[in-house]
């Protein structure tokens, strides 16, 4: 990467699949051999850490020492992904503005991308206006995460469009629904999606996951990565051109 890059994954509403999206991002960049570190703000437990233990540090983003742990150690040789817990997206962006990080993004000294995970409710839409106010100079991705069978904003597409139009440089991403049983089994296995697909356990040992469920996860992750390719995520973050995501 030409400059330090940070991806923030968050939402003010809970239960919209933030950590799931963060996991797909870590898998995506790992597969492209992009060095990546992650911060999990589900302090003290850390859901992301359960799946990506080696790459993840659990932090309390409301504490200055932990903010320093992240933002004072940014490097252009390593991408930083922050999984922000429910309710902390706006406060986090406020803190980033206060410490001058958003200004640094505006001056092109760092790359900041925000994955704002939307649930299928009006409450999610209302977050957009507040969040986007901080992000005039960041890459802002509105991620529609189909974690259940709800049809997004089907009840009022006009309302959604009205919110979306307010966002300058906002880009839509759609995360399809993963088969429920496959999702449960990956949860139980506590491994990255790519390890599940490769039939590997938490320590790299051979596992005995269902071929059907692995197939569903592979198909789903392929679609998710297809979305990341579509928005040229690697280019946005200044990734080296030789990197290319592929399943092992």
């Amino acid at each position: 990467m030409a400059k330090p890059a940070v991806i923030i994954v968050g939402a003010d509403k809970g239960g919209v699949g933030k950590t799931t999206v963060a996991r797909t991002l870590l898998d995506y960049f790992s597969a492209r051999r992009v060095p990546v570190r992650a911060f999990d703000t589900e302090c003290p437990r850390g859901t992301l850490k359960r799946f990506h233990g080696d790459a993840t540090t659990v932090v309390d983003l409301s504490q200055v020492p932990d903010q320093m742990k992240i933002f004072d150690t940014l490097s252009e040789s390593q991408l930083t992904v922050i999984d922000v817990r429910a309710g902390l997206l706006s406060p986090t962006l406020r803190s980033l503005r206060d410490i001058g990080f958003i200004e640094a993004a505006r001056k092109n000294q760092v790359t900041l991308a925000v994955f704002h995970i939307l649930g299928p409710t009006i409450a999610s839409l209302e977050e957009i206006a507040e969040t986007s106010a901080f992000l005039t100079d960041a890459k802002y991705f509105l991620v529609k995460n189909f974690i259940n069978n709800t049809h997004f904003f089907e009840w009022d597409q006009t309302t959604y469009d009205a919110y979306f139009r307010k966002v300058r440089n906002g880009v839509d991403i759609t995360i399809p629904k993963l088969n429920e049983m496959a999702s449960e089994q990956v949860e139980l296995a506590s491994v990255p999606f790519v390890s599940f697909i490769a039939n590997k356990g938490p320590n790299g040992e051979s596992a005995a996951y269902s071929f059907v469920l692995r197939g569903y996860v592979r198909h789903w992750l392929g679609n998710v990565w297809g979305e990341y390719d579509r928005i040229k995520l690697g280019d946005i973050l200044g990734e080296q051109p030789e990197a290319k995501a592929a399943f092992g």
Binding site: N179, E180, M181, A182, S210, F211, V212, L213, G215, Y216
Partner: peptide, 13 residues
């Protein structure tokens, strides 16, 4: 359902 799919396809491979 998925259980039925597993009962078939997991056996095929």
């Amino acid at each position: 359902n998925t259980r039925g799919e597993m009962a078939l396809f997991d056996r095929l491979v």
